[in-house]
Design a protein around this nucleic acid. Structure first.
Ligand SMILES: [Zn+2]
Ligand SMILES: [Zn+2]
Length: 265
DNA sequence: TTAGTCGGACGCTCAAAACG
DNA sequence: GTTTTGAGCGTCCGACTAAG
């Protein structure tokens, strides 16, 4: 039977965890942690969304196995090939490829149809502005094309200017000053903005993804004051220092720009 | 039991197209 | 200039086989 480490390394335990109600161990190298208000979680489980590293190492790539952002990656550490753990080369995307016409947008720039909205949005409790909140401020924003319908995201105007457009609806979590003695998934290493007490749930596309669970809440955290916490017990065979190093490494990489900038094309 | 292989589903990125 | 679309290309799930 594969060990817990094996399962994590080889990906059998690497999908987004199912919605949790309390802190649970999650992969120390799964640095992009999403959080979602429980009201937006589906009643029945959807398939958890898979996440990928930006660049797998050559060994993991060859083996078609899960890699991680650290170098050496955990899989290479496990198999004793740390010295050979290097990013694989990526081809440059072809340019000048004609794509033909896109489907027409509506006049508001979005093709939103009530029937297209997931039932979580239609049926959820965020169909009106909560007391004390005003439209398009704070953590509630009007759904385009649906006056009076609000969802709990910040307004587009709050989007940091360096955010790629596909993240046009960034997801934030409210958080206090992050303590430094815990392992944290702060923000994406490539989108390191965390201002005004808002911590973006990096990597969440503009589409609604109810399958993103609430994970790893700090003890006592509520939906408005939460941030993921990593546990050193995730990889019992690895020293806590390794996990710290891994996190530190990711922090050092923060703000290095988009993935393409670090590619070896 | 563990490692290796690999088909193909799924996810990420970013240039092209559409829009204001 | 900005936003959205959607395809290229990558990751890695999961099934399978082989070896020790
Ligand atoms: Zn790897
Ligand atoms: Zn590696």
């Amino acid at each position: 039977m594969p060990s817990a480490v094996d399962k994590s390394i080889d990906g059998e335990d690497s999908l987004e965890p199912l919605p949790l109600t309390s802190s649970q161990p999650i992969s120390a190298v799964t640095m992009h942690v999403y959080s979602f208000p429980s009201a937006l979680l589906p009643a029945q489980q959807l398939r958890p969304k898979r996440r990928q590293v930006k660049n797998a190492c050559t060994h993991c790539q060859k083996a078609c196995k899960k890699c991680d952002d650290a170098r050496p990656c955990l899989r290479c550490i496990k198999y004793g090939c740390s010295d050979e753990c290097v990013d694989s080369q990526r081809k440059e995307r072809k340019k000048g490829v004609k794509r033909g016409p896109y489907k027409k947008r509506d006049g508001r720039g979005r093709n939103i149809n009530l029937n297209d909205l997931p039932p979580e949005i239609i049926g959820a409790s965020h169909t009106s502005i909560p007391p004390g909140m005003s439209p398009n401020t704070g953590s509630y924003v009007q759904i385009p094309g649906f006056p009076g319908i609000y969802t709990s995201y910040p307004p587009a105007s709050s989007k940091p200017s360096n955010v790629p457009s596909m993240y046009s609806t960034p997801h934030y979590i409210m958080g206090p000053t992050i303590p430094t003695h815990t392992f944290l998934a702060q923000t994406s290493p490539h989108q390191p903005y965390a201002t005004h007490g808002l911590y973006q749930l990096a990597g969440v596309p503009s589409q609604f993804h109810p399958q993103y669970p609430t994970v790893g809440l700090h003890d006592g955290a509520d939906l408005n004051h939460q941030y993921p916490v990593y546990s050193a017990s995730v990889y019992p065979k690895l020293s806590p220092q390794l996990i710290v190093d891994s996190n530190a490494r990711l922090e050092e990489e923060g703000g290095t720009g988009k993935a393409v900038g670090s590619r070896h094309d």
